[in-house]
Design a protein around this nucleic acid. Sequence first.
DNA 1: GTGAAAGCGCTAACAG
DNA 2: CTGTTAGCGCTTTCAC
Lengths: 360, 360
Amino acid sequence: MSKTPPPSAAGAVPPAEADGPSGQQQQRLQMADIARLAGVSTSTVSRALSGSKLVNDETRSRIMELARSLKYSINIGAQNLRLKQNRTVGVVVPYDSGTRQHLSDPFFLGMLGSLADALTEQGFDMLVTRVDAEQLDAAAAPFDSGRVIGVVLIGQWRHHEQLNQLAARHVPIVVWGAQLPQQLYCTIGGDNLAGGRLATAHLLAQGRRRIAFLGDIALPEVAQRHAGYCAALAEAGIGADPALCVAVSFLPEGGGLGVRELAARHAEYDAIFACSDLLAMTAINTLRQDGVAVPQRVAVVGYDDIELASYFHPPLSTVRQAIPAAGRALVAALLALVDGRPAPSQQLATELVVRASSTA
Amino acid sequence: MSKTPPPSAAGAVPPAEADGPSGQQQQRLQMADIARLAGVSTSTVSRALSGSKLVNDETRSRIMELARSLKYSINIGAQNLRLKQNRTVGVVVPYDSGTRQHLSDPFFLGMLGSLADALTEQGFDMLVTRVDAEQLDAAAAPFDSGRVIGVVLIGQWRHHEQLNQLAARHVPIVVWGAQLPQQLYCTIGGDNLAGGRLATAHLLAQGRRRIAFLGDIALPEVAQRHAGYCAALAEAGIGADPALCVAVSFLPEGGGLGVRELAARHAEYDAIFACSDLLAMTAINTLRQDGVAVPQRVAVVGYDDIELASYFHPPLSTVRQAIPAAGRALVAALLALVDGRPAPSQQLATELVVRASSTA
DNA sequence: GTGAAAGCGCTAACAG
DNA sequence: CTGTTAGCGCTTTCAC
């Protein structure tokens, strides 16, 4: 395990003219330079580069050619200042306050990718920020300082009130999460109630009767999935047994902890509904270590349908979240808000994907 | 599966004063407003807010209090323009040119998270951009337009030459990838040669002799892992059989395709070394469908040690990449470059993690 | 200790 | 069609 040297011409060329400590920009080409070289005024260059018809074709193409060959590119910062515009959107990913752990769920990756796609498509840049899940109001910082025109927050966690305050302050913000009463901000989310109901009904249809629930009810999305779970049980004439409901975080260790907790409670169960695929996978793993067969002894359904779910062993039954649609919807809602148009909250349809982990 | 309405007060409050189409900023507080309210000049506000000692304590605290209560935040764009500074770094994630698929590997998520951490720690913002893997030179765009002070590119793919040209143009860029001869840009990467060797030597030690290699040799990193693989085989007195080397992309379907291709070639093999955990997992999945026992009949080692690797069944043996260190190293190198200091390329140590997928 | 004025790189009237 | 001028929101000499 080496530490540095191998091949030949390693090491990089430092920038041409570096000046002072961190954060400085080197001397770079600007519009005035192009203007001088082209023998015109900066106004003409500006017009040419922005494709104004007010400039002679010959002049324009000469200027554009010059700019291209010199790899001149307009300084967006200055342009933004002058135009009072901005084509950057903030995407804020909360991290677990205790562990500072974050993004550990592949679901987030999908979401980020989907947002990146949707934003690129609309010609917007994406500024990614991390924020403590217990301080969600910090999500507004990039907006307050003018870096972004609005913010997409991935997950509302337990801070409904902080988010309401941001909305009251007119921070353009759209949140991936559950729709709640008295909500001033816009949420886009899956239909968690339906999702929870689908998963549970499916397990019941498989003849399971003692279905454990893994997830932290304090989170609105999880609470709604739990409500769906209870509803499905009730429809089958079964009461929800609190002993089967384990509050675990979305961190990967959650699945194992949940299974251990159920064991510690001496709970009897023949199925698990986990609130994320990651939890389902780690739960299955722990069950396997304990010699419990999945799905024979315990059937498992996850949530999200991350890419790996179908490759897991056994392939994971799960509730699919419409991630590509989510990105588009979040971006559309945010842009509406920014333009002063109304942005109604929205629930995206969810779909049950049945695979081997729940079918004995 | 509903589509919209439920609860009570849904829908969000549009921003106070919206003006015109997309990208506009609403009327917001600025320094002059604070100045007027505080009965001082903007110069004084500027000084107060930047903690200059040239301003009366009483005045300063009055101004700061005012700013805080009004949630005034300095306009970073204007400040950057005036100061000719910038605290934003570009992170560029290439996507597969054919499929436009991207970020599908959890490895990228880890890298993004690690970069976000390292950048946050240093007080930098992260602007995430996607770029066609066949047009890596487009990675410089956010730099050319002054949005970022430099770029971290995740993966060099096959376009060494384009990257060299960027470096020659003095674009501050640091690439996660392999160190190559005649290289003008800075790379940070794992020690792929050692990684390939470790994995292969381990499989040999398990008594395996016909080890298949899954990965696209056209990519420098994969080529180096392959070189390590060949070296380990050679040390064991075994020649590398080209029939056992399958060029597959990093897309998730690669693992399955690789196994199918080996079958089509009627290749005999008792082990697989896959160039990513994702490939290893999907390969194992296909083997399982074909009734081939892992690790009994075929032992498998992956690469990266993504979070899920230890939860997979069987738990995946793999070569761990030092992701947290990677983020810090990439950021440190980029900042060095930006400051005009030299940024030598670096290889980070890799480590073999042995789990059940390779131990019969 | 504080204010007035100039200017960061760009665009948009307004004249010619 | 093109140049001149003013100014986006901020910082910083330079006076007072």
